[in-house]
Write a protein that binds this DNA or RNA. Structure first.
Length: 340
DNA sequence: AAGTGGGGCAACCGCCGAGCA
DNA sequence: ATGCTCGGCGGTTGCCCCACT
């Protein structure tokens, strides 16, 4: 009888890990330790959900209409994002790349010699060989053997790998004059650089918006509240997540273009521009007419919900935040029926 | 400048053994 | 004793980068 697959492959991310996935995984393992790999992805996803729940608690105070938009975006995010990785993939990523004691960089001549001798002794038992090389992984040893030593065990020559490593060596690791350490450009890193470009574009947009604001001081108040709102929570101490939203005005209907939670950018999970259609559908469901700017139903609903959240007695939202959030969470839970 | 092939590496696949109910 | 789950391991694949033509 064959083994059942470790997890359903349907809907799982594959291929190179993104910086965000690395962060989710690293944060989770730092908090809870490794092991339980099969249940880890789901559990790590809960961390995101808790962060978003916290985010919601804060933003529920800001503006009820905005909350609707954020709500929908969050719902779609929770539905389609998270750490959608096989547990084995999580384990591999942690052990081979994210572990803090991983030693990056070129294998020293001593290590190379040790690998040769151990391989002669142990054969292809890479985990045992790697166990004798602190900070080195079996995958790294295996790759090194397969790509270099197996081809030319007797006389390893200087390769372009070595040349590259010299030119890209990290100065901080080279201070003692030892063999220079190669700065690996992993796939995740490449993705990260791509994401940086995205952020820069967004920043440029924001800068342009700020310039517009400066040129048109009358709009400053409105744009400040709609375009970029950053909240650093003080209520729960240093462990509180910080997050920021960015909105974009388009055809007078603002929608979330991105937000960050403790450095995690949701724009890395899905394209907000493509997401506009979802917003329109949702908006159409709410209002019955996406283009109707003076929709009274939405306003009425907002007022009713605000009244409901306020307990109908005009007390402060903050006072009922916890209970209100419970209501909101159940609303989010039931979002699928409501949206579709 | 464009195409191509090889090197290097991360990630996936499938099997195995230990542990547990 | 048996079957299942899970972590670990080695082999392999696929992608990206770069040197070469």
């Amino acid at each position: 009888m064959g083994r059942s697959p470790c997890c359903s492959k349907v809907g799982l991310n594959r291929g190179a890990w993104t910086a965000t996935e690395d962060k989710i995984l690293t944060d989770y393992i730092k908090a809870h330790g490794d092991g339980k790999w099969r249940s880890l992805p789901k559990a790590a996803g809960q961390k995101l959900i808790s962060l978003i729940s916290y985010l919601f608690k804060i933003y529920i105070q800001v503006e009820i209409r905005t909350i609707f938009k954020v709500w929908i975006n969050l719902y779609v995010f929770l539905k389609f994002a998270g750490l959608k990785r096989c547990g084995k993939s999580c384990r591999l990523r942690w052990l081979n790349y994210l572990r803090p004691d991983i030693k990056r960089g070129n294998l020293t001549p001593d290590e190379q010699d040790l690998i040769i001798r151990l391989h002669r002794l142990l054969g292809n038992r890479w985990s045992l060989i790697a166990g004798r090389l602190p900070g080195r992984t079996d995958n790294e040893v295996k790759n090194y053997w397969n790509t270099k030593l197996s081809k030319n065990k007797a006389q390893p020559k200087e390769s372009k790998f070595d040349k590259k490593s010299i030119t890209t060596s990290s100065p901080c690791n080279d201070h003692d004059g030892q063999a220079s350490t190669k700065v690996f450009r992993t796939k995740a890193m490449r993705l990260m650089s791509h994401q940086v470009r995205q952020v820069m574009i967004n920043n440029t947009q924001h800068q342009q918006q700020q310039q517009q604001q400066q040129q048109d001081p009358d709009q400053n108040h409105i744009l400040d509240s709609n375009y970029n709102s950053t909240v650093e929570s003080e209520s729960t101490g240093g462990s509180s997540p910080s997050f920021s939203f960015q909105y974009r005005e388009e055809n007078s209907s603002e929608y979330v273009t991105g937000f960050d939670i403790e450095g995690i950018s949701l724009s890395e999970f899905f394209d907000f521009d493509e997401f506009c259609d979802v917003n329109n559908v949702i908006k159409g469901d709410i209002t019955g007419n996406p283009d109707d700017q003076s929709n009274t139903d939405l306003v009425l609903n907002e007022e009713l919900m605000l009244e409901n959240w306020n307990g109908g007695d005009g007390c402060d939202i903050q006072a009922n935040m916890d209970s209100n959030f419970g209501t909101s969470a159940s609303f989010l839970e039931s979002g699928e029926d409501w949206v579709i």
